[in-house]
Design a protein around this nucleic acid. Structure first.
Length: 455
RNA sequence: UCCGGUGUAGCUCAAUCGGCAGAGCAUGCGGCUGUUAACCGCAGGGUUGUAGGUUCGAGUCCUACCACCGGAGCCA
């Protein structure tokens, strides 16, 4: 049986067999205590043996064992039940240089041993919560009739424009084919043109939203930026819903409901792990999540946000003014101090936003929205898409983009164009938010960052 | 990429003004009547991130580089 099921059902008086890894061992001449963990939950199962029974067995921290015995009420207060052990056999011994101790390790050290860190309490909890969230994402959209779309990972469209891209080629880079002038002959590469890893599935999602209706993507995303922060990865997972016959307000309604659903799933299914995070990682975490599970999020226009920031202008390193993008310090002030919770900032100046965002009637702003949350910052970026052919074409031209590259994107506006909207939610940032983990590298199994792709 | 900080035993950290490199945990051995990061005793364990430099003498001061952390930019 798995330890989670044993503890949940409290089968006192039953004989059970468990398999797992030894977390710690304490022994006296008479009695030996072995704490066993099998990853099914945070709690260990305490095994109690007559010391004579374990004579000669090397069962240090990390050893894989199988044990059986009688489940009894524990006389000590720290655990409700324990296993009065009758047999114990070693499945896999552990060398004496096993790096994980029962003491607390630094997250930086554990990151260097990513093949072992899921065996540490913190990371077991992180990845169980991450799993709950991933399942909840699909459940949320499935219950609402959204179509799950697998957007391509390799792309040849250079109109994504969301950042530096990783190139994909099967050329021998020491000696690539060249044309008569000596330039690399990309037309002879695998896809007949330069290709790269996707930076967003949004444009493909728009194709499906304007044919099959509401849909979403949930897949890996790649950015080759030289970003070195606690909230950026070169490979991360993003959820991008795209909704048909919808405007920006519908988009925010969806985003808000989505985040609340994810928080509720975590509270419903991950409470034992949340208690660990609340106690060890971020005090007050559970209260905050409970508060947000039912709260509606603040919505404020960019213009009003600037006015709010100007009132506190002296405290900022960078003075806020209309037309400038919000600095991190501005975003943190809004979400952490003014509203103390998630905030949607909407209707940004069009000059600082992407070409595909719908131009508002004032012709100065676009129907964009960013959702800011405490500690993490921007967790969602979204917009209503420009569905008017003429307006979109003018935006492409004004920004100096190559019209021909966008032929199929423009086609969607020529054939039965509809208002539609969507957003991207950074999955790891969501995991950070509900666990309180400070560094994004600690909420993805194997982080990829500049200079690091180990394991 | 920019600014700031840190780098000492397997891990977490001390080391005063430039003057004998230490502790706890982990590991090994022994002890201990039910432990809870168990406890008690003993033992082994070091190219002080790397390469130079100053000095009678450098973990400590100087230069360069590397790694990590925090903040910024880019964004999700």
């Amino acid at each position: 049986m798995r330890i989670k099921d044993i503890l949940r059902t409290e089968r006192l008086g039953e004989h059970v067999t468990v398999k797992g890894w030894v977390r710690t061992r304490r022994n006296s001449a008479q009695v030996t205590f072995v704490e066993l963990n099998d990853g099914s939950c945070m709690s260990n199962l305490q095994l109690v043996f007559d010391s004579g029974l374990l004579e000669g067995l090397n069962i240090g921290t990390g050893t894989a064992v199988e044990a059986s015995g009688l489940l009894v009420e524990s006389p000590a207060p720290k655990q409700p039940v324990e296993l009065r052990g009758e047999t114990l056999s070693i499945i896999g011994e552990t060398a004496s240089d096993y790096p994980l101790q029962k003491k607390r390790h630094s997250l930086e050290f554990l990151r260097d041993i990513a093949h072992l860190r899921p065996r540490a309490n913190t990371f077991g909890a992180v990845f169980r919560i991450r799993n709950i969230l991933a399942q909840a994402v699909h459940r949320f959209f499935h219950e609402r009739g959204f179509l799950y779309l697998n957007a391509p990972i390799i792309t040849t469209s250079d109109c994504e424009g969301a950042g530096e891209m990783f190139h994909v080629t099967n050329f021998n880079l020491d000696d690539p084919p060249r044309d008569p002038k000596g330039a690399v002959a990309w037309d002879r590469d695998f896809f007949g043109k330069p290709a790269a890893l996707t930076v967003s599935g949004q444009l493909e999602a728009e194709i499906f939203a304007t044919s099959l209706g509401n849909c979403y993507t949930f897949g890996p995303t790649f950015r080759a930026e030289n970003s070195n922060t606690s909230r950026h990865l070169a490979e991360f997972w993003m959820i991008e819903p795209e909704i048909a016959f919808a405007d920006l307000s519908d988009d925010m309604d969806l985003a808000e409901e989505f985040i609340r659903a994810l928080i509720r799933a975590t509270l419903d299914e991950g409470m034992e792990d949340l208690e660990f995070f609340d106690q060890r990682i971020q005090k007050g975490l559970i209260d905050m999540l409970k508060r947000l599970a039912d709260a509606s999020f603040t919505r404020i226009t960019y213009t009003d946000a600037i006015a709010e920031l100007e009132k506190a202008g002296d405290r900022f390193e960078f003075k806020p003014y209309w037309g400038a993008d919000l600095q991190s310090e501005h975003e943190r002030y809004l979400t952490e101090e003014v509203y103390d919770g998630p905030v949607f900032v909407t209707d940004y100046p069009k000059d600082i936003k992407a070409f595909y965002m719908r131009v508002n009637d004032d012709d100065k702003t676009v129907a964009a929205m960013d959702c800011l949350i405490p500690r993490v910052g921007e967790i969602i970026g979204g917009s209503q898409r420009e569905e008017r052919y003429d307006v979109l074409l003018k935006r492409i031209q004004d920004l100096g983009l190559v019209e021909a590259d966008y032929w199929w994107y423009l086609d969607l506006r020529r054939y039965g164009s509809i208002p539609h909207a969507g957003f991207g939610l950074g999955f790891e940032r969501m995991v950070q938010f509900v666990t309180g983990m400070a560094n994004i590298r600690d909420v993805i199994p194997f982080p990829r960052t500049p200079g690091n792709a180990a394991f």
